[in-house]
Nucleic acid binder design. Structure first.
Length: 312
DNA sequence: AGCCAGGCAGAGA
DNA sequence: TCTCTGCATGGC
């Protein structure tokens, strides 16, 4: 449920798109709620999700199959969506607001690097994303800059995803394609989205989901190592991408994806600047950062990318 | 122009 | 177990 008074305002008619519209009575609805310990900017700009774009005064994009606009003033978040927004629990889930961030901070080891990152990024939360969208997006992420991942994902949605309802006067917006839709468009279309050698990986993952050879929903209820093993059976999924999926969409808070930035940060701050092999970095992280290691990882990642620490 | 980007997989030491 | 390399593509 949403804290604070739910206020449905700014209603207006909505234009419908898609194959099976719900009906012409749907309206733009907004809600304001108090969100303690949330920095929306840090959360949405920290490279977890690639479909919410920063606009003047907020962010706009698609969550699940809903168009949404988000903004924040002080401790108050305003969310707008189209149609049956329900009790807005879905946006609270997406923003990970059920996690007690202060408790997470208290669980962290007391070391200078992490404390500096927390000071700089306080309020950064881990999103709870759709597992398929998360897996597909991070399959496309390898050796690409975040800006470029956003472009490829946008192309993919445009060419393979269905339409979602948008406010009147708004340009068309596409949902992230389902696994079945990815299979249906075929690999040539994927290559046209500039994903290069990742195209067959995405196609194979989509086929595995469609054929029921991988159960993404089940990954939340399985030990971390088991989840890794299952995901890494997919071509193009190694330890890093597996941990991204487990952390960003399966609630596995111990998952600790080590990319080039996190590796850089760990080497600089915990190994005196020497270059340490990836498996050793992962082993160190698993032992050092505790039950919320994945959050620590995201703080180090974002802080390092902002130029903080001794590694940027 | 050249190096790098939220990596992975295969080969070889 | 570690290191090296190719893989597409574009940003800086």
């Amino acid at each position: 449920m949403v804290a604070g008074g739910s206020r449905f305002s700014r209603s207006s008619a909505v234009r419908l798109y898609g194959m099976d519209p719900v009906g012409p009575g749907e309206q733009l609805a907004s809600v304001q709620f108090v969100a303690a310990e949330l920095d929306l900017a840090a959360t949405l700009d920290s490279g977890q999700a690639f479909r919410l774009e920063r606009l003047s005064g907020g962010w706009e994009g698609v969550v699940g199959r809903r168009w949404v606009r988000l903004s924040q003033r002080g401790g108050v978040v305003e969310a707008s969506a189209v149609g049956a927004a329900g009790d807005w629990g879905w946006i609270r889930d997406y923003l990970g607001l059920d996690v007690d961030l202060s408790g997470v901070y208290r669980s962290f080891p007391r070391d200078a690097a992490l404390e500096a990152a927390v000071r700089a990024c306080r309020g950064l939360r881990l999103l709870r994303q759709d597992p398929w969208e998360c897996l597909a997006s991070f399959l496309l992420s390898s050796t690409k800059q975040i800006r470029q991942i956003r472009q490829v994902v946008a192309l993919l949605c445009e060419r393979a995803g269905g339409l979602v309802e948008v406010p009147v006067g708004h340009g068309t917006v596409h949902a992230f394609p389902t696994a079945a839709e990815v299979v249906q468009v075929g690999e040539e279309v994927l290559r046209g989205c500039r994903m290069g050698f990742r195209a067959p990986h995405l196609m194979a993952a989509a086929e595995a989901v469609v054929e029921g050879r991988v159960d993404l929903a089940g990954l939340s209820a399985v030990p971390l190592e088991e989840g890794r093993e299952r995901l890494m059976r997919l071509p193009g999924v190694g330890p890093k991408i597996a941990d991204c999926v487990l952390l960003f969409s399966c609630g596995q808070a111990r998952a600790f994806p080590v990319d080039v930035w996190v590796a850089r940060s760990l080497c600089a701050n915990y190994f005196g600047g020497e270059t340490v092999p990836l498996p050793q970095l992962r082993a160190f992280a698993a032992a050092h950062f505790g039950p919320w290691a994945g959050y620590a990882q995201q703080y180090l990642f974002h802080y390092t990318r902002l130029g903080g620490g001794d590694s940027g």
